[in-house]
Simulated assay, not measured.
Amino acid sequence: MLTHRKADERGHADHGWLNSYHTFSFAGYVDPNERGFSDLLVINDDRVEAGKGFGTHPHRDMEIFSWVLNGELEHQDTLGNGAVIRPGDLQLMSAGTGVAHSEYNPSSRNGVHFLQVWITPNRIGQPPRYQQEYFSPEKRRGRLQLILSPEGEAPALAIRQDVRVYAGLFDGSEQATLTLAPHRYAYVHVARGRITLNGLALGEGDGVRVREEQVLSLENGHNAEVLVFDLRPNELPGM
């Protein structure tokens, strides 16, 4: 069963320097029907103006990853990590017992467009940690590249939850199929472009809850970038 959530059904917040769309309830956007899915709690589609960003703020007991679609995002945290991430860079921060970080657009001229995703961990009170890996377009072109998994088998990063995340780029005749284990859920997010999932046409910003399906087929992409989350069969996030 596929449950389609269209891009224009998401929550929206325009702060001037930040234009953000919320797939699930976040901050001032509260929808009792959209409180996450399985262990997936947040997908924020953020555009930040040049020279602006999020000042230092704390997190704990959350798996948080950032995925840049266009531009650059500068990260600093209280663990001593600092990096500028660009398209293809996956940054994963496991907040654990507590970490504070800031995220800024270091450009003086260009905006940055990125996704920030929160996933609830399977264990709380763990030491915080930071990981980063680059996934070239060639690794993602016409296929679903594993970028996050519990085991962290290279080049995927290790996440503290029974979730696997795949990233793919599709255009023209490129297509890919993902077979889920029995009774698994999935969530498909179209970061940009257009694509078809099991015959369902999707546009940029659309998302799909997947239940009772074992095979996911992606095809007919038009400059499409897609994230696929292989999830436990839970309806709502919980620790």
Rank of each mutant, 00 (worst) to 15 (best):
D162T: 05
K6S: 07
S136I: 06
G193I: 14
L41N: 01
G142P: 15
L18C: 03
I147N: 01
P87R: 13
L18I: 06
D61F: 06
G80K: 03
N223L: 13
A186L: 05
G142A: 07
L236F: 05
L73A: 06
E213M: 15
Y104F: 14
V190W: 10
G98A: 08
V226T: 11
K6V: 00
V48G: 10
G28S: 13
N70R: 11
H183W: 07
D31A: 08
E174T: 04
H75F: 06
I147R: 06
G53P: 08
G36F: 11
Y104I: 08
N220M: 00
L2I: 12
S107K: 13
G205Q: 03
E138M: 13
V112R: 10
G96W: 12
V117N: 03
L231G: 00
A156P: 00
D89Y: 09
N220K: 12
L40W: 03
L227E: 04
V163A: 14
D39L: 14
L73W: 11
K52M: 09
L227Q: 01
H75Y: 05
L157C: 05
G193A: 11
E138V: 13
T120H: 00
H22F: 15
W17P: 12
E219H: 15
R232I: 14
E49K: 15
D14E: 09
G28P: 15
D206T: 09
G111T: 14
E63D: 12
V112W: 07
S38P: 00
